[in-house]
């Protein structure tokens, strides 16, 4: 690990100024659970590291289910898991975050970091994409808001420009009879990286018919996929077996995975459908009990 300049600004503007003015490579440090490993192995050799954990706005969860929650980008997984109202409204988003690492890692890992690490297998991202989360980005030209799925553009790459960083993630107002869920396939039971991940968010009407759905898949393409065809398989249905089979087929059809040390193309394609179907069932059952 070679030397670098370390900065810990206390305001968004100060952070933007540091990142925009940095010579060479500047990296944002939130929880550090990815960055510190990359530093240790020499995978990244930044000239400056900007620690954003001292910026109050990044460390808060505000809002509520009706108005929409705003989650600071550097809030830890354990803080998210302990936020009762957030857990009640968005259990799928929360379980995606809580699947990252061990208890110790949960004390550090953040949704902003997981998103900007831009791994196609990041566990927090599919749930946020399914939820329709909006990402608040600060930069030299001020603030802008973009759908969360537009942040990663490829493995390890984001759409953020020089000087920009993620301040917060905004969840939409929660409708009645809604539920979400995230499932991932790992060879072990925890402490592992997803071979496939699937996040589903949906809303039912009074008759139990699905009126809204979003389906997101992780680790089956260079970025997390938002699969419209899979969502369409659910919308208008009672989320019965026929709809679930269509959903699974659409999810598998959308996959563009690679074969690597963690899994084959065939495996990822098939299991993406299986997990999307299972996540939809959990989301449906949560929606039914969430009147």
């Amino acid at each position: 690990m070679s030397g670098f300049q370390y900065e810990a600004p206390v305001s968004v503007d100060e952070a933007v100024g540091l990142l925009a003015g940095a010579k060479g490579l500047a990296k944002v440090l939130a929880g550090g659970t990815d960055l510190l490993v990359q530093l240790r192995t020499g995978a990244v050799q930044p000239d400056m590291v900007v620690d954003v954990k001292r910026i109050d706005e990044l460390r808060q969860i505000s809002g509520n289910a009706a108005s929409g929650f705003v989650i600071g980008a550097a809030v830890s997984g354990s803080e998210i898991g302990e936020h009762a109202a957030l857990v009640k409204a968005w259990p799928g988003v929360v379980e995606g975050m809580e699947l990252i690492g061990s208890t110790q890692i949960q004390g550090r890992a953040t949704p902003g970091g997981n998103l900007c690490n831009a791994s196609p297998a990041g566990d927090c991202t599919p749930g946020l994409v399914a939820a329709g989360a909006i990402c608040v980005v600060a930069g030299p030209k001020g603030r802008r808001e973009i759908p969360v799925e537009q942040v990663p553009v490829g493995p390890g790459k984001t759409s953020l420009a020089k000087g920009e960083f993620v301040v917060a993630l905004k969840l939409p107002p929660r409708a009645k009879n809604s539920g979400d869920a995230y499932l991932r396939m790992i060879p072990r039971t925890e402490m592992d990286i997803a071979i496939v991940g699937a996040g589903v968010d949906l809303t039912l009407d009074a008759s139990g018919t699905c009126t809204h759905a979003r389906v997101a898949l992780g680790a089956v393409a260079p970025t997390v996929l938002l699969v419209d065809a899979a969502a369409k398989a659910l919308i208008g249905s009672k989320i019965d077996d026929a709809a679930l089979a269509k959903l699974a087929a659409a999810a598998s059809a959308a996959c563009k995975p690679i074969s690597d040390k963690r899994g084959t193309i065939e495996y990822r394609t098939k299991v993406a459908g299986v997990l999307a179907r299972r996540a939809a069932v959990i989301a449906r059952d949560r929606a039914r009990s969430n009147g």
Partner: peptide, 16 residues
């Protein structure tokens, strides 16, 4: 060698 670490060299964890 492609998996010279405990992330992709999977020894069982307690919950396994």
């Amino acid at each position: 060698l492609q998996n010279s670490g405990f992330l992709d060299y999977r020894i069982p964890v307690a919950s396994d």
